[in-house]
């Protein structure tokens, strides 16, 4: 099938073209940018925000927003470390149980956010922001402000064991991207996200249980936040009440830059993946080409605006809010 150079096709591929353009730009200034080791560094830095972005993509596709990720990741990371240490402190000695346990915790936390949103009829923006604060507060409460460290070499193999030059957790993240893509395209739940995002009343009239879809969406996002927490611990060897800090900005920016529309129904998992890579390529590239640090924040902002302009079809929107 020959692909036509239509407006739709350009917009669909725009995020990927932006990513390609950035890579070419940075590589032209400093060829070391394209070295395999640097690509591995970018991939590694992208791994935790990638998981958060996948989770929040489902919510944004539904036309809602989830801002609870920082609290959710911090709480999951702290609980994961504490459970891991309680269960023997080594993956071989039964501490692996902490992994399924924390995934359940994440699902529960997300479900709770969904309940606050759906049952108490609070807009998802406010409900999730508040739940994020609850998560951070709970993380402070269980740690008392201290750092919890994990020194298990087997668990840290996620970071230190390399296959084809990339750390193990990058490969696992790639598998999880496939899983998210499968959920989005080949399950009823995934299709229902789009139905709700495209038009809630229409979806309701067609027999979709909108409340249940929303709850499932938030719980699913929670599971991905828990995975992000595990990766974050694997990468840093520690958890504290600020482990999730900055993830909100990175994840939301990435998703939007990747071409997922904040008004719902448009874009998906693959957009989020490209978006996370764009944001991390910018972050890494600015240091690698030696841009003075006082210009970096400003340039990041400009590049984000350019990326959004290029990668979303704003002709469909009557007004921006």
């Amino acid at each position: 099938m020959k692909m036509k150079l239509t407006r739709e096709n350009i917009i669909r591929w725009a995020p990927a073209l932006v990513l390609l353009g950035l890579v070419v730009l940075f590589a032209a200034i400093n060829p070391a940018f394209l070295s395999q080791r640097n690509l591995a560094r970018i991939a590694l830095a992208s791994t935790p925000p990638m998981m958060v972005a996948l989770g929040v993509t489902f919510i944004i596709v539904m036309g809602s927003i989830d801002l609870s990720m920082e609290g959710a990741v911090s709480l999951c990371a702290v609980l994961f470390c504490l459970m891991f240490l309680k269960l023997g402190g080594s993956l071989g000695a039964g501490a692996w149980l902490a992994i399924p346990a924390i995934l359940l915790c994440g699902a529960f936390f997300g479900w709770l956010t969904g309940m606050v949103h759906v049952r108490l009829q609070i807009p998802s923006f406010m409900a999730s922001l508040a739940m994020g604060f609850v998560g951070t507060g709970a993380a402070v409460l269980v740690t008392g402000g201290d750092i919890v460290r994990i020194d298990d070499d087997v668990f840290r193999a996620l970071l230190t064991w390399r296959i084809l030059g990339f750390p193990l957790m990058v490969h696992i993240a790639a598998l999880l991207v496939l899983l998210a893509w499968f959920i989005q395209n080949h399950t009823t739940l995934g299709r229902n996200f789009y139905a709700v995002g495209g038009g809630e009343e229409l979806a309701h009239a067609s027999g979709v249980n909108v409340h249940r879809v929303r709850l499932a969406g938030f719980a699913l996002a929670g599971v991905f936040y828990a995975v992000a927490a595990i990766f974050q611990v694997a990468r840093l060897g520690q958890a504290e009440s600020v482990t999730g800090a900055n993830l909100m900005f990175v994840a939301i920016t990435s998703v939007v830059v990747g071409g997922v529309a904040l008004w719902g129904g448009i874009g998906g998992v693959l957009n989020a993946v490209v978006g996370v890579l764009i944001v991390n390529v910018i972050g890494n590239g600015m240091v690698v080409i030696g841009l003075p640090n006082y210009l970096q924040d400003g340039l990041l902002g400009v590049l984000v605006i350019v990326a959004v302009v290029l990668s979303t079809d704003r002709r469909l929107v009557s007004f921006a809010k």
Binding site: F33, A45, Q238, V287, G290
Partner: peptide, 24 residues
């Protein structure tokens, strides 16, 4: 090079790996 890592562990890890690419 001297750049801000904002007192933050995650940002420090990312900045350090970018330094490694630039200066090796």
């Amino acid at each position: 090079d001297a750049q801000p890592a904002d007192w933050d562990t995650t940002k420090a890890a990312e900045l350090m790996s970018s330094f490694l690419t630039r200066y090796g």
